[in-house]
């Protein structure tokens, strides 16, 4: 033990055993894990560009882009995804903040409840949600709105935990007390003093929820909505190389916004942020 990478031990503060095993070990683990994810993707990519007689071709892609259903199902999934994210945030922000400020002892309970969709079969959740909303007007029932409602519940285990731990990382109660004693009502308090400090949590919850919506098949298919993943499966039954191309596209569609959002948010720290707050508060006061 004593002979292994003293610099790492210093840097890692004595860290875990894995750290002490040194750089070569860490790199090989990283490489293995990376390979586990990347090799299938590369293999799929290669397969999707394979034409007759092993020639290189874009035909899987050109055919897909030429299919109207490709665009309509993608559009449907994006709409449902955006709607689900909006509904999720509208539900999460007040709930989690209320629990932290007023019912701190019930935090664990709420967290456990949010995990229920993981243990209850999704068909049961689906029917539960449908039953709950049966008496609502047709605008919801029988339109993709019902799908968004389903997804809010099904993605809750991911969204709730993400946002909850972000709230946990700031001293919410004190910030709320301070803001109120300075004369701020809940709206201004949330908008200028609380939510800006929960940006990463909001972002994480949104991304996870959106990604969930773009990948969910079972419930959409059960409710007979041809979303993007449903379309993907349908295509896969007929044309293997198109299905593979499609899943790569889906992957890219999830990754691009994710990467963009990450870049944007990591650059917002410090710098012009102050001016942003100033302008935002100014406009709110003017309202």
């Amino acid at each position: 033990m004593a002979t292994v990478t003293p610099d790492l031990q210093r840097a890692g503060g004595g860290g875990s055993n894995v750290l002490r095993l040194g750089k070569p070990f860490r790199y090989s683990v990283l490489t293995l894990v990376g390979a586990f994810f990347i090799i299938p993707i590369l293999a799929s990519a290669r397969f999707s560009f394979l034409g007759n007689n092993n020639s290189f071709t874009f035909s899987a892609y050109t055919q897909l882009f030429g299919t109207p259903q490709f665009w309509s199902t993608l559009w449907l999934s994006v709409k449902v995804g955006v709607g689900t994210v909006a509904l999720t945030l509208a539900l999460l922000i007040p709930t989690v903040i209320f629990v932290h400020v007023r019912l701190p002892r019930l935090r664990r309970l709420f967290e456990s409840v949010s995990l229920l969709p993981l243990v209850i079969p999704s068909v049961v959740v689906t029917l539960g949600v449908i039953t709950s909303f049966r008496n609502l007007p047709n605008i919801i029932y029988g339109t993709p709105v019902i799908l968004a409602l389903e997804y809010v519940v099904l993605a809750l285990p991911y969204s709730y935990r993400t946002f909850d731990s972000a709230v946990q990382s700031i001293d919410l109660k004190t910030l709320v007390d301070a803001g109120q004693s300075l004369g701020a009502g809940w709206i201004k308090l949330l908008r200028f003093a609380i939510l800006p400090n929960l940006r990463s949590g909001l972002l994480g919850a949104s991304i996870l929820t959106f990604a969930f919506c773009l990948g969910e098949f079972a419930v959409a298919s059960l409710l007979s909505f041809t979303t993007f993943p449903v379309f993907l499966v349908q295509v896969g039954r007929l044309e293997a190389s198109q299905a593979v191309a499609l899943s790569l596209i889906a992957l890219i569609f999830t990754w691009i916004p994710l990467a963009l959002v990450m870049i944007v948010f990591s650059q917002r720290r410090g710098g012009r942020r102050g001016a942003g707050v100033e302008a935002a508060i100014e406009s709110a006061v003017a309202e």
């Binding site: 004190t174 910030l175 508060i281 006061v285």
Partner: peptide, 22 residues
Amino acid sequence: FQSYSLFPNMTTRENVEFGLRV
């Protein structure tokens, strides 16, 4: 307050001005 209660997303000046802005 006993624990640090400044809004982490605001500068010193913005913190001080917060009550006046609202």
